[in-house]
Each structure stands twice: as structure tokens, then as C-alpha cells.
């Protein structure tokens, strides 16, 4: 890009300035975007602020942009008493995300590579074979019965990642990515040097396709991390709940817990915090923060990879 820009003749460059937005228009666009960005950030900040607010203040004064009375009790509670199985859910989610991401990158990367090669004769069939799964699926009931009656992966950690260990959509993106980012000449020369297909893929193609892999990995990881439906549908056993389902349950049932506490006049919980002053609202918000935390923190690091991976993979497809 930069070299191209430098190659422009001075008159061109001058002209280019002419077609830029006027200063006023540019300013207006900036203002609109800043407003839009605030709309994205502020709601999340409110959740963070609420999680750091002392419970009584939160209940009496409601949600604010800034904690009126600072307290980390929600987090202490969360990490001390196993706060409603959050730690177990965290462990399950991390395991599922790690394994699921590896499986997905591996299977998608491997499936897409032959499809990207013009010398692979069965390419059309296998492309259609994966593409059809996007166009027609048997539906939720069949999926449920498959997992619970045939594969028996319900009520196990497998249910959290196995159904997401492949994706026809990413195969298409990855195939385009290989085609546009790995020059034929490179593969051809590897072949002439006597490398087999596997060796070519692993030693020559893979290093060139890193942005593509990073994109698939990021989206697969986020997909498993954020998955709610599989846990809702397939898992009843608390031991295997994932984070999303656990916090969903708590959003609904802390209220029940609290009501129970007020009826019983504040019996003490095993955490040593009496149920009456159980930090329910701030606790909930703290749950949301620890659930989105890893993603929000990891996001800026991955961002430069995935924008490249996405745009190259998607546009030319």
C-alpha cells in the first residue's frame, strides 16, 4: 500500500486531497463514530462499575457510571465460596475452549487445503459435501437426539466443544485464504524439491497461512467460550456446566436465593456471608465481568490478525 502511495505523481496526490472529505464533514464523521464507540463501550463500563459498587449502594441508588461506594466484595465472594459453581464452570470452559479451538483449527485447516488445490480432482465433491451442511440441517431435535441417544455425549464435557470442532463456513474462508496467500510457485517448488503433500502443507504452507489460522482460532475460541445452547440443551449435571450457562442461571436464580433469604430471616450461607446481604446485584455483574474479561483483554492482540484473515479470506471468495 505505502509503496503504491509513494508511486503517485505529485499532481495525483494533490488531486487525491481534493477528493478527501472536507474538514467539517470529516469532523462530523468523527463525532458520529465517537458517539457510536461510546455506545459500545459505556454499557460494558456500567457493568464493570456496578460490579465494583458496594451492594447496598447498588440496590438503593441503582446503576451508575462510577461506583459511588467502592467495594470488591462481589469478587471476593465469587472466588472464595466457589460462588455458585463459577470456578468449576471456568475450568470447564477453559478446557473446552482449548481443545475445541485446536480441533477446529486442525480440521478446518486440513479440510480446506486440498480444496484450495487445483490439482485435487475430488475438490468439487468435498466442497459440496461441506457446503451442503450449511444449506440444510436436520434441526435442533435431530441434533439433540444424535448427541443424547446415539453419541451419548450429553452430560459430559465433550458436549461443550465437540459439536463445534469443525465449521463449513471457515472452510470456505480458509480455502480462499490458501488460494490467495500461498503462491502456487511455492508449492510447486517444494514439490520439485521432493517434499510430499503433508510436508509441503506443514512446512511451507502453514507458516504462510498463519493469519488465516489465527482468524479461525479466534472465532472458534470465542464460539466455544460463548456457547450457551449446547450446555442448555445437553447438560444437566452441574459438574459440566460452562460459564455462559452458569451465569445465565445465576441471573435468574440469585433473585430466588435472595427471596428465600428474606423469608428465612437471613440464614447464614456456607460462605460466611449471610444471605440477607448476599451481594446479589454486584455479584451478578462481577460474573459478567469475569466471563467477558478474557475475551475483551485478548481481543486487541488478535485484532490485527483477524482483520487481515477475514478480509483476504472473505472478499475474494
Amino acid at each position: 500500500m505505502t509503496t503504491q502511495a509513494k508511486a503517485y505523481t505529485p499532481s495525483r496526490k494533490k488531486f487525491k486531497n481534493m477528493n478527501e472529505l472536507s474538514t467539517t464533514a470529516n469532523l462530523i464523521v468523527h463525532v458520529i463514530f465517537i458517539a457510536a464507540c461510546l455506545c459500545c463501550i459505556v454499557p460494558l463500563w456500567i457493568v464493570v462499575a456496578a460490579s465494583l459498587t458496594e451492594e447496598q449502594t447498588l440496590v438503593l441508588e441503582g446503576y451508575n457510571l462510577w461506583p459511588r461506594k467502592f467495594s470488591t466484595m462481589a469478587y471476593t465472594f465469587l472466588f472464595s465460596s466457589g460462588g455458585g459453581g463459577v470456578l468449576v464452570a471456568y475450568k470447564n470452559t477453559i478446557i473446552a475452549t482449548l481443545i475445541g479451538t485446536c480441533l477446529c483449527v486442525m480440521s478446518v485447516g486440513l479440510y480446506a487445503y486440498p480444496l484450495s488445490r487445483t490439482d485435487f480432482r475430488y475438490g468439487r465433491f468435498f466442497t459440496f459435501f461441506s457446503y451442503f451442511s450449511m444449506l440444510f440441517n436436520a434441526g435442533t431435535v435431530a441434533f439433540y437426539l444424535l448427541c443424547s441417544q446415539i453419541l451419548h455425549i450429553n452430560n459430559s464435557i465433550l458436549a461443550l466443544f465437540l459439536p463445534q470442532s469443525f465449521s463449513a463456513y471457515w472452510v470456505i474462508i480458509m480455502r480462499t485464504f490458501y488460494r490467495s496467500n500461498v503462491p502456487d510457485a511455492v508449492i510447486e517448488s517444494a514439490r520439485i524439491d521432493g517434499a510430499g503433500e503433508w510436508r509441503t502443507l506443514l512446512q511451507i504452507v502453514c507458516p504462510l497461512a498463519v493469519p488465516g489460522f489465527a482468524t479461525v482460532a479466534l472465532f472458534a475460541a470465542v464460539g466455544v467460550w460463548n456457547n450457551f445452547f449446547n450446555c442448555l440443551l445437553l447438560i444437566n449435571d452441574r459438574k459440566y456446566f460452562n460459564l455462559q450457562y452458569t451465569i445465565y442461571e445465576i441471573l435468574r436464580s440469585v433473585q430466588a436465593l435472595k427471596e428465600m433469604a428474606s423469608q428465612q430471616g437471613g440464614a447464614s450461607s456456607n460462605a460466611g456471608i449471610s444471605l440477607a446481604n448476599l451481594p446479589s446485584e454486584s455479584f451478578r455483574m462481577a460474573m459478567a465481568v469475569v466471563t467477558m474479561g478474557p475475551i475483551v483483554l485478548a481481543y486487541p492482540f488478535f485484532q490485527r490478525y483477524f482483520v487481515k484473515g477475514l478480509t483476504i479470506g472473505a472478499v475474494k471468495g
Binding site: 456457547n227 450457551f228 455462559q244 445465565y248 459478567a288
Partner: peptide, 11 residues
């Protein structure tokens, strides 16, 4: 886009 609907439910 990277936040789950559950998180958005909280928000």
C-alpha cells in the same frame, strides 16, 4: 460481536 448474548443480557 465477541460478547455472548448472555453477557448482553446482563448489560
Amino acid at each position: 460481536y465477541f460478547l455472548s448474548w448472555i453477557i448482553i443480557t446482563y448489560v
